[in-house]
Design a binder for these strands. Structure first.
Lengths: 192, 192
DNA sequence: GTATATACAGACAGGTCTGTCTATTATCAA
DNA sequence: TTGATAATAGACAGACCTGTCTGTATATAC
């Protein structure tokens, strides 16, 4: 049984993701969640705090999903890295998160709406991306890369490029384009 | 001498870029531009129309700048392609457009705020990205790539990845990361 | 000088936004 | 049963938003 707070955060995330942060009013969240306004302000001090909670939930949700997909695909680190791009394609096609069609990356969107790098939402987005790079770097090290951090940065950059291409231009195949590049990059980084 | 209309579009672009579309009110644009409200509504039917005009101006401004930088760098197609990433780095460092510090790509931001792919602002963003890919494909063909369109898509994806990495994580060096990958990709695509 | 076009300042309507408040209802423990 | 907790509906204030309107000033063309 979901708590009222969970209901709010889930609904907020879904709407913020689909329609944007500024464009989504508190009242819309409340109506969709079937929750009274005072309940929201009992759990959160402001809309900003709700935004941060939604981003935090998305961070957990997304990384759990991504790492799960990668680890399910293979036990080999190199294969796991490549599996990231297969997972991305599932996401781009709208099959990854039920109730949430693909609308790009909510953290990229947040950084766009809250451009100031010091804004909590921007910092949260930055942190999310960093956690993913860290995870990739660990896999790169396991795979025996000469410079695991450099390779992880490259793969992360390919991931961001694929996300933007899929969203802005509506090309889910961008995942395949990125994967093809990733193969070359990884091979080059492993051939010591 | 800039017309009132130009003044409006320039100011709107600057504010929309720095603060977002929904977060920027008409009144702020008017105050900064020193223009009366009725003048705005004589030139544009709505805020949406002003947004589209600002995106259109940015499309011209940005592509002129980028192509200029690339063509200034070298006459060789391969070198020109690589020069794109040097130009990106200038941009990320805030040295490309005076009066406009780097806040990511306004078209990526627009696609985030106007998630519906049919929204005019989203379509405009898609079109901008397509025009750049077309330009890259022409250069790729000149460089003798086996599949110029495929290579152009790859390079464009690297560009988007670099932009997002620079903005969300605050790492202007992402341009260098992308350039290193681009070199490998191009070499592979030219070695028929 | 007069007509026309353009822009100005500023009030205004009608709507939406966040956040606060009150008064009521449901739930559950002792 | 009583008392505490949590959630409800809905009104409200104050700010901000877009877009319209009026009346005035400026400048150019004839």
């Amino acid at each position: 049984m979901k708590s009222r707070r969970d209901e709010l955060v889930d609904t907020a995330l879904r709407l913020f993701y689909a329609q944007g942060f500024h464009a989504t009013g508190i009242d819309k969240v409340l109506a969709e969640a079937g929750v009274a306004k005072m309940t929201l302000y009992k759990h959160f001090r402001s809309k900003d705090e709700l935004i941060l909670a939604a981003l935090h939930r998305r961070d957990e949700q997304f990384r759990n999903w991504l790492m799960g997909e990668m680890e399910r695909a293979s036990a080999d680190p190199r294969e796991r890295l490549l599996a990231m791009f297969d997972a991305l394609e599932e996401w781009f096609e709208g099959r990854a998160f039920k109730g949430m069609g693909f609308s790009g990356c909510v953290f990229i969107n947040a950084a766009g709406e809250f451009a100031d790098a010091d804004h909590p939402a921007h910092r949260s987005s930055c942190e999310h991306k960093r956690l993913i790079v860290d995870y990739l770097a660990k896999l790169c090290a396991d795979a025996g890369a000469r410079d695991p951090h450099a390779l992880a940065e490259q793969l992360a950059l390919l991931k961001e490029g694929a996300i933007v291409t899929a969203q802005v231009r509506g090309i889910p195949d961008a995942a395949k384009t990125a994967k093809a590049m990733a193969q070359g990059i990884i091979d080059a980084a492993l051939a010591a």
